[in-house]
Write a protein that binds this DNA or RNA. Structure first.
Lengths: 343, 343
DNA sequence: TTCTCTACTGTGAACGCTCACAGAAGCATG
DNA sequence: CATGCTTCTGTGAGCGTTCACAGTAGAGAA
């Protein structure tokens, strides 16, 4: 390699320096930078050589100032963050989105908006155009931020079907209902007939859909709907533990339980262990997510795999398509039963 | 094209609009925006009113273009990401940094640089001035990115003491050695005398220091240094499992084991369980981190709490100080023994 | 009065880029 | 010959800010 910054920050090379070096005008350099249309091969090559020689890197602020685009997208969490950061799925999602965006050379801005004040500040920031679009991770319905962003016309892709928002927002989700059906059918196939369920929050699509899948399969199988077998949690480990205790108290003859998340299932396992129940001999346990928590649990959890890697890449794809002018799309991805020890 | 409706994007108000509305000049508005020095109370108030009325939000691109600052910082991961995203500590750290920065209205750019190509691209991006500073999470020594950034004069704060970098980079770390000493002393106080250790990677400061603390306390207690009791892992659950198996094979009379991370300790517990050892009756297990994995484990882990919330806020504080012109600082934070069931 | 000092205010000029437009060159068509 | 069309190139303007500088007004001192 040649040259180096001999100490101290020198003035960074601009498009002018490149133009002079290549013997062309700013305009031509700019055209090369932006796709190279209407540029002669000779000029193209001269410019590329000059860029390499000068070490030129485009100043995104100057570019953004005139284009109005920021060439960055936000990753927005609108809930008290503990829940998410505790959730291994979230990590996979965040990593996947960062990587998918990096492939397009687009930086990701991580935004947390747990409190009212933070929400206000971040809404302002976003609507002011500091990001081109938003990847939204907020399960609960009636999220004021989502509605405001939608109203402001900010391109938006949610993770999970947003309840109560119009069709103008794209989303990517796993097929929750179908996954739940698969799991409950699996439990039935093991000969279990008193199957309990710990649902997610019922103001989230995941909570509602997984419960619906559970009910459908029981109905198909001709089993009675017993509300003593249904309790709901909030996806946290603690709520799984509490849920299992309530189920045991209300239906001591339960022989299986479908838990709407692996983290809750960990709590369920702990409660069953304390109650002296063997898993899967006495009670089979089925989780949902196939998060790291599933393999970390003892016994290892039979669960429903959500394709988080594909969910993240699809979210990015749909958002970028929207930035390119396409209409918001809805994408539903299939799930998969993963059999381990607990059922 | 659809006509511009009320919901559509109208031209955003600029500093000009605010100035006109307030009956002052751009300059005065700018001064209000930047601290309000040399502005009369009347003008101050008029400008604030105009800002509220117009809904003005500063255009950061225009500002950055002239100031040369970007008013954002990067959060850089230079390792294959799985390790980090699997690690609950990492989440706490990321969340803490995001929040601490948000309090200063500074967005955080999440950057992953796992592969060589990504590292090149991201180094370019950073050295081009697109972030003002970098929070670095990379435990291994000899990280080329860190060295390049340091050489380019990019303000840098590492999490954990960077091995092999000069004193020009700030860092924040827990007192690893002292924490390890506390844990081993605790195991001794329980009457254990054959204490094994599963270390972290020995090219990381955490790996080295925690092992050193272990050795110091054994020496103080007059116990022999037995290399059969020392194995090293890579902080992953799987490596903990493998480490415990090797320890059991080499030292069947071991009555305690100090594990340099909770995640590895989970693996150790699983291996001990399979080997028919009761914890803590047969073998006491001590972890390190006090991550969620500690309470999720069965039995719950006795561990060393690292003050991740303070680590993140200190990292941000040190970085911002550096951006303000101060010299890079090194901060060591105290740890704390958390007693649970495993020891 | 006149001068100085302080507190405040307005005005060009950048910052580095893209965009619209005007033009040039080459070549086919009228 | 002019006329058009396509491909390529350079130029001026301007994006929304901050900064340096040149002012103005009012108070106090000589």
């Amino acid at each position: 390699m040649t040259m180096s910054n001999t100490g101290g920050r020198r003035r960074a090379p601009t498009i002018h320096d490149v133009a002079r070096e290549a013997g062309v005008s700013r305009g031509t350099v700019s055209r090369v930078l932006n796709g190279g249309h209407y540029v002669s091969p000779a000029a193209q090559e001269a410019v590329n050589a000059a860029i390499r020689k000068t070490g030129y890197v485009v100043n995104r602020h100057a570019r953004s100032l005139i284009t109005g685009r920021s060439d960055s997208v936000g990753f927005l969490l609108t809930e008290p963050q503990e829940r998410f950061f505790e959730d291994p799925n979230f990590n996979v999602l965040l990593r996947g989105c960062t990587q998918a965006l990096a492939a397009h050379d687009i930086p990701l801005l991580l935004m947390l908006a747990g409190t009212r004040d933070e929400r206000r500040r971040i809404t302002r920031y976003i609507t002011a155009g500091h990001v081109d679009g938003v990847l939204l991770v907020s399960s609960h319905s009636g999220d004021p931020v989502a509605e405001e962003l939608r109203a402001a016309g900010v391109p938006l892709v949610a993770c999970g079907k947003p309840i109560g928002l119009g069709s103008k927002v794209g989303y990517v989700a796993a097929d929750d209902r179908d996954g739940a059906r698969d799991m409950v059918r699996h439990l039935l196939s093991l000969g279990r007939r008193r199957i309990g369920v710990v649902t997610g929050p019922l103001d989230t699509p995941g909570g509602v859909e997984r419960l619906a899948g559970y009910r459908e399969v029981l109905a198909e199988a001709g089993l009675p709907a017993d509300e003593r077998l249904v309790v709901s949690g909030d996806y946290s480990r603690a709520s799984g533990e509490a849920g299992a205790e309530r189920l045991l108290a209300r239906a001591p003859d339960m022989d299986a339980v479908f838990v709407a998340s692996d983290l809750m299932a960990q709590g369920v396992l702990a409660a069953l262990h304390r109650a002296g129940k063997r898993v899967p001999e006495d009670i089979a346990v089925g989780g949902f997510d196939d998060s790291p928590a599933a393999t970390a649990a003892t016994p290892a959890l039979t669960t429903i795999r959500q394709p988080w890697d594909r969910i993240s890449s699809e979210m990015v794809r749909v958002l970028l398509a929207q930035l390119g002018g396409e209409e918001p799309a809805a994408v539903i991805l299939p799930t998969e039963l993963v059999r381990r020890e607990s059922a």
